[in-house]
Each structure stands twice: as C-alpha cells, then as structure tokens.
Design a protein around this nucleic acid. Structure first.
Length: 553
RNA sequence: GCGCCAGUAGCUCAGUUGGAUAGAGCAACGGACUUCUAAUCCGUAGGCCGAGGGUUCGAAUCCUUCCUGGCGCGCCA
C-alpha cells in the first residue's frame, strides 16, 4: 500500500517537472512516508515538500501545493491535504484498503513475504556455545534471536544459512576430557583431587559413566591418549544434547561447522599465510601478531602464541575468511555482549583483507539475569550450579520462552524470573496473541456448524465493512509486509512481536464489540473474510517467530 | 583510566531511523459474561524521555560534557 502511494507521488513529481510548476528536475533520493501518530493526519504523511525546499528554493507549502494539484483525481487517494509547516497528509480511499484483504487471501501463507533481499546470500552464525556442557538460559536468548533474525531475513527474500560453529579444538575441550577422565577414575574407586578449573557439574559424572559403559575402563592407554579419547567422547555426547535441546526449542541448523576441521584441512595455516603475504601479520617475542591497530583496534592481537599454540582468534580469523570465500555477501554473528571487545579486531581483519567491515554484522545479545523468586541464580559452567535451557523450556514452555526472549530489543538486559514466568503463564503475552488466532478458528467452527460457507474471493462485498474498527484492522494487516522488511534489515525481530500484540489487541476489541456471524449473510461473509485475514497474518507472523498458532485453547 | 550497551509512567518495555499533542503491557482503581471461548473487553489515573549545553523549521531520537547501572579491556576461552 505504502509502495503504491510512493509510486503515485513519483509520477506526480514527474508531472510537476514537465509542466513547470517545479523546476529543479531533481528526483529526491527517497520519498519518506510515515504513518502519523494522530489519525487526523491521514493514513500517510510525507515531509517531501520540506526536504525539497532547499533544492527548489521555494517555500515548502508552495511545493506541497504543486504536488497536491498533480495528485488530484488519483483513484488511490481519497483526500490529500497540506498541514503544518508543509506536511502532505494522504487519506487513501477505503476501497483501496479493502483490497489488502484480497491480497492476504490470495497469498495466504506467503502474505508478508517480499523479495527485497533476493539474490543476497547471508550467513547467520549463532549459539556456537562450547561443546563442554549443556546450554544455559543465556544461550537460549541468542539462539532464539539468531533464529528469528534468520527467519525474518528469509521472509524478506534473503537467502540465509544457519550455522553453529563448534569450538572443538581448544583448551576447553581438553579440560572437559580431563574432567571426564578424573570422574571415570573416581568411578573405578580411585581417590582423586578435582582441580579448580575442571568442570565440576554433575553432567561430567554422567558422561564418565556413559563412557565406561560404551568404551570400557580405558586400560592400556596413557594419560594423553585417555584424555584425548575422553574429550572426543564428551564433545560428541554434549553436542548431541545441545542439538536435541535446540530442536526441542524449535531451532535447527543447516550446518555444524567444526573448528577442528579447520585445522585438519590446514585451513588455519593457509589463511594465516594469506595474511602474512599481505603484510598484515608480523612476528615479535616469538609470537605471530595480526596488525589490527592499522584498522582501528587499540592493540595488535596474537595469532600464534610463543609456545607455538594457536589462539582462538587465529581460528576465528580463518573461519571468517573462509565464510566469505564460501560466497556469502553478508555474515551475521550473534554473540553474547561480553564478547563485544572482539568486534574491532574482527572488523580490522576484514578491512585488512579488503572487505567492507559492514559485511560482518555482529549482533550483541545482552545478558540474561536468571532469577528464582527474585533471587539471582548463580551461573557458570565450572561452578556446577546452573539452570539449563532445557529445564527452563520444560518448565515455562517453548512458546512462552521463545516469545519472552523476542519481546525486547536484544541490546537491553533481561531479567528472567522462573517463578514469575510460570505464574504469569496464564496471562503471558504469547497467549494473548495465540488466543486471538484460536478465536477466529472457533468462529470458523461455529460457522461450519451453522452451515455458513467460507467467503470466496470474488464474491465478498467489502462495502459491508463500514465500521471504523474494521478499517483499522485492515490497515494493520497492510502494515505487515513493511514490518517484516523493517525487522529484517535492522535485525530486530521484536518488531514483529509488537506488531502482533497490536493486531491481537485490535482483534480482541473488535470481537468483544461486534458479532461476526450475524443475520445478514453478506455482512457475515465480509466479516469472516476480515477475521480470517487476521488469522492468516497472525499465523504467518508467529511462524516466523517459531511460535505455534493453536486452533483451540 | 579507556571502550561498548542501557537509562522513557510505580514495574517491564515500545517509539516507524529527525516529524505534528510521547505510547503499550503489568500493578492500582471502577465497570462488562442468559450473546461466535472472560486466556477477553471498556473506562480512570499515572511523565522534567537520567542532567546540562549544542545542531535546525522541528530532538526521546544526532553531536558534546557529566551522572547512574551492566559488561569488556590476556600470548584466557
């Protein structure tokens, strides 16, 4: 709808230039159209006349008058007015608005999708938690946001790949192996001293027991071999847990990318060689450094330590170089906000290689403070006492949990009180939206029971929808496609949540005031047409968020 | 000390990328179920947009200086 109006304005501009009422001949880069807060200002408002004032060297109102004159008689517009310092307010004809319903019905599950991202390949990397323990609640937030950003991008036509980067090569993995081996020895009756920096949590004992059952007592292996075996076993099992937990949470990846495989294929050395070739790295104090200060970082960063081992940064560099070599136009990383200090060095690396730094966009997810009855729950894999994502999902429910994470912008912190989330479960916002969907389905069932047929596209008389609240609902439905686009390009899935909240509120209000199944068949048909459009849009939006749309509650 | 994020109603947060009179949800108070599901609706009340300065036709939004909270600043991951 917005786009149609934009085109009409463009034509009007052209007209003004040819008939001489406007002189500069310059087409504005962008015609801004906004939905005014005050409904008296029409359906759309544009500041075009004001932004053109400088180039045209005319008063805004004068420009506005010329444009309005050119728009006279356009069937799209019911009323075009000049207001304030030079705003142009457009009121669109109701008949135009009601065509939105036809679009929703025709496009069905496709309504809201667009092609603006067509041809752009995007990679989204998220979660990427170390495979040394189960996912906790903070991972959950990153997982849902990453998944929803990917979904919203796909809805806007981008080609998106979801990837989980498995850190299966570093020290943490070795520590896991050592921890499992110690617990195994413990099971075998040996007395052990468990180190401070080992993984203390109960699942390590579980892993040790499983290992014993599957692999035996590891007799005849020396320490290094045993740790290696334990580590590999542990990583494999933990990754299985993670994959299952994520699946239960509604998240699946296109690819699990192993850090170890970078080394196995010699990719790290190969990519580091390229950096050296370009003169971006240098040796100092027996270590290899990347000259990130050249591109805005405040320190140079070590790639290979003086003892010859690689830093995580080394494989991260290789990994990201390799991402672009795979042909992605844009890479999105979802990180915990505590890693924000890594952004400058990653961007510096890209800049050094001649990539615009904007090709890598890092989405920082602020911390989740997990509370129980207002008391903070201590987190940390090593300390042992932590609540897993799985426990939270089992306790709160998948839909509520996902919705909760998506309700706020990801760069503000989030208090997640388990007791509160459970208590609120009956008036949790997610149910509010789902209930709207279920209500439409319920009306459909009643209609069917009374033998009322569902409306057909060409047979509906939308002029039966005379109420203002009906028009408002249609306008909200019309905003769905642009909401998706905004959420996609800004990586802000919470916009979809707020859109849904608003739509559901309008629907519930309408439902309480008006009856859908009424005496007059034509009105009934028109209203069924309207509410089923609402149902479709709610379902489409929830689908993008990974939340179910129940027919019955 | 330096950097990143946040600061909007009692609480939790939106605010269409600089637009017209700052909005929702909880919580509070008052109403609505012989009517398609009351997991709902209607109404009332609630504000120095952290503070000061600047940019312009116009600022919650941009620049700047402070204040407060969180997180970072390793040849850790």
């Amino acid at each position: 709808m917005k786009e149609q109006l934009r085109q009409a304005i463009q034509i009007a501009l052209q007209q003004c230039y040819t008939n001489g009422t406007l002189s500069s001949g310059e087409m504005p880069v962008e015609i801004q159209l906004e939905i005014p807060k005050n409904p008296e200002h029409g359906d759309f408002a544009s500041n075009l006349a004001m932004t053109m004032a400088k180039v045209e060297r005319k008063a805004p109102r004068q420009i506005a008058e010329a444009l309005v004159a050119a728009l006279q008689g356009n069937p799209l517009c019911d009323k075009v007015e000049i207001a304030g310092p030079g705003f142009i307010n457009f009121r669109l004809a109701a008949s135009c608005w009601y065509r939105v319903l036809d679009q929703v019905m025709e496009q069905g599950a496709q309504y809201g999708r667009s092609r603006i991202g067509a041809g752009t390949r995007v990679q989204g990397e998220f979660v990427s938690a170390n495979p040394t323990g189960p996912l906790h609640i903070g991972h959950g937030r990153g997982a849902v946001v990453g998944d929803a950003v990917a979904a919203v991008l796909q809805a806007a036509g981008f080609e998106v790949q979801r990837e989980y980067y498995v850190n299966d090569a570093g020290n943490q993995v070795k520590t896991l192996g050592r921890s499992i081996l110690l617990r195994l020895r413990e099971l075998q009756g040996q007395s052990i001293e468990f180190p401070e920096d080992g993984y203390q949590a109960g699942y390590v004992r579980e892993l040790a027991a499983q290992l014993r059952a599957e692999k035996g007592e590891l007799a005849g292996l020396d320490e290094t071999e045993a740790i290696e075996l334990c580590a590999r076993f542990g990583v494999e099992k933990v990754l299985d847990w993670i994959a299952v937990d994520l699946k239960i949470f509604g998240i699946e990846f296109d690819q699990w990318y192993s850090e170890k495989s970078l080394y196995d294929r010699n990719l790290v050395d190969a990519e580091l060689a390229k950096l050296k070739e370009k003169g971006l790295s240098f040796e100092q104090d027996q270590a290899l450094w990347l000259r990130t200060t050249e591109y805005g970082d405040d320190k140079d960063r070590v790639l290979i330590k003086s003892d010859g081992s690689y830093t995580y940064f080394a494989s991260d560099v290789a990994y990201h170089m390799e991402k672009f070599e795979r042909g992605f136009d844009r890479v999105i990383d979802v990180w915990g906000a505590d890693h924000h200090g890594y952004i400058p060095r990653m961007k510096a690396m890209l800049a050094g290689l001649g990539h615009p730094p904007e090709d890598l966009q890092v989405l920082l997810i602020q911390m989740v403070n997990l509370l129980r009855d207002g008391q903070p729950v201590t987190m940390g894999k090593r300390s042992g006492n932590f609540i897993t994502l799985r426990e939270v999902v089992d306790e709160v429910g998948r839909d509520a949990c996902r919705y909760f994470f998506l309700m706020r912008r990801c760069d503000s912190q989030l208090d997640f009180d388990l007791e509160l989330a459970k208590q609120q479960s009956s008036d949790n916002p997610v149910y509010y939206v789902q209930y709207a969907h279920a209500r439409v389905c319920s009306i459909n069932r009643n209609a069917a029971a009374e033998g009322v047929a569902q409306p057909k596209l060409d047979e509906v008389d939308c002029s039966k929808l005379q109420l203002d609240e009906e028009l408002q609902l249609v306008k909200q439905l019309a905003r769905f496609p642009e909401t998706i686009i905004g959420a996609a390009v800004n990586h802000e899935p919470h916009r979809v949540v707020f859109f849904l909240q608003e739509l559901a509120a309008q629907f519930h209000s309408y439902y309480n005031r008006q009856r859908v199944l009424v005496e007059d068949p034509a009105t009934t048909q028109a209203r069924l047409y309207l509410i089923n459009s609402v149902r479709i849009v709610i379902a489409n939006a929830l689908q993008i968020l990974g939340v179910s749309a129940p027919d019955k509650m």
